[in-house]
Nucleic acid binder design. Structure first.
Lengths: 219, 219
DNA sequence: AGCGATAAGTGAACGCTGATAAGTTGTCGC
DNA sequence: GCGACAACTTATCAGCGTTCACTTATCGCT
């Protein structure tokens, strides 16, 4: 309850920014959309809860906007790799690694970004420049490129190959951030004997598996 | 509000079963734990909401119990495949396919089962026979087996390979059930041009990618 | 048959949530 | 200095998970 001073007459947009920042921070702290309440956001900003609704239609839109901003960072990290050096396959490996790394760094936000869907009341226009879609398009293009230049085996559609790679990276991020931690914890609590994979080795294995199997010539 | 008749004195456990069934059905209908309220469960069973608490400590435990029952079905479908015919690699392929198929069939429950964690107040003992853990152990054992019999390339730990395969299947199920549907819908709504993968081809591609890349001899 | 014990279930309430409507207050242009 | 409007608050609503105190029906026992 920072007891903000009321903004001057044309400066209402500043509150919008403060709300977005506070929401992003709370989301990263608590790791789940449900735990972030409108009231807690308002409290952190130092404002009453209905003030949120002066700038966002509802909680869903606010969270989507936050996600979209974080997605911009995601896109900024991945898009340069589309034109990195090396063969298309090497660029795919880089991309996969960076994707997983980014996902692990943003463990709390990743599920919100990649498992939820955009608000139902979202107009198609707003979704147009969605950074996630842009990266996906780039990935498919990169695979298509790899097939054309002979680095990737033909036979499968570029979309299937791209989505298969996405599947591997997506699954790895989610297993590492959501399943592995509690399995690890509960194994030590009970007396079940079970070895768990090393994070880095799992990442290497996923990347290797996906890239090797599509490579035109065995590495 | 079916206005149930009150059960006789030793028959209280029947309500427990009715609650579990109603919860499973509601969960499959609505596809999210948050949308299933204690009150809606109670209403469907025809009982007042505090009655739920006569049989379950809280919502989390109730949902975990439902998940655990569904997990039993999951385990029942997968465990036979551990001892199916063919090489370890062929069994892994079967397993991967069945895993994804099961996930797609239980699209609403899959995220609840595989993304949430068990209740914090769960005692280690209760988690002991968790069917998910059993299947995971079987998967690792199968990979270890495959390495020993020379069907799977050594060099990576069995845990890393097993979890890499899990990653691919996990990611494929989640992408197919959560991302692909709304991407598809929003693409047609806006005028973005983008091809999407065919479901069956994506599954084939993921399974092929993961199994081929670990195979000792190229298929 | 009647009574005490207990299982089965309910009604009302608490503090939380997202959201809305109506009201207040500060600030700007004229 | 006054009207208009932007910025923001207070009060409120319905619904959520959960708890407590209460009722009611059934059982075993004398």
């Amino acid at each position: 309850m920072s007891s903000r001073v009321r903004l001057r007459k044309g400066e209402g947009e500043q509150l919008r920014r403060e709300i977005l920042d506070a929401t992003r921070d709370l989301l990263a702290d608590l790791g789940s959309m449900e735990l972030v309440s409108i009231r807690s956001i308002a409290h952190r900003v130092g404002v009453s809860s209905p003030s949120i609704y002066l700038h966002f239609r509802d909680k869903e839109h606010l969270l989507y906007e936050v996600c979209r901003e974080v997605f911009e960072d995601f896109a900024a990290r991945l898009i340069p790799l589309f034109s990195a050096e090396g063969t298309a396959l090497e660029r795919l490996r880089l991309l996969g690694r960076e994707y997983i790394r980014w996902g692990l760094e943003h463990a709390a936000l990743y599920p919100v970004l990649f498992l939820g869907e955009p608000p139902a009341a979202m107009e198609a226009e707003e979704l147009k420049g969605d950074p996630g879609i842009v990266v996906l398009e780039g990935l498919v293009a990169l695979v298509r490129n790899g097939i054309e230049e002979g680095a990737i085996l033909p036979g499968r559609s570029p979309e299937a190959i791209a989505w298969a790679m996405w599947s591997g990276a997506h699954g790895a991020v989610l297993l590492l951030t959501s399943s592995l931690p509690w399995i690890e914890e509960h194994l030590t609590a009970s007396d079940i004997e079970m070895d768990l994979p090393d994070t880095d080795e799992l990442i290497d294995t996923v990347i290797d598996a996906l890239s090797r199997s599509f490579a035109a010539q065995p590495a």
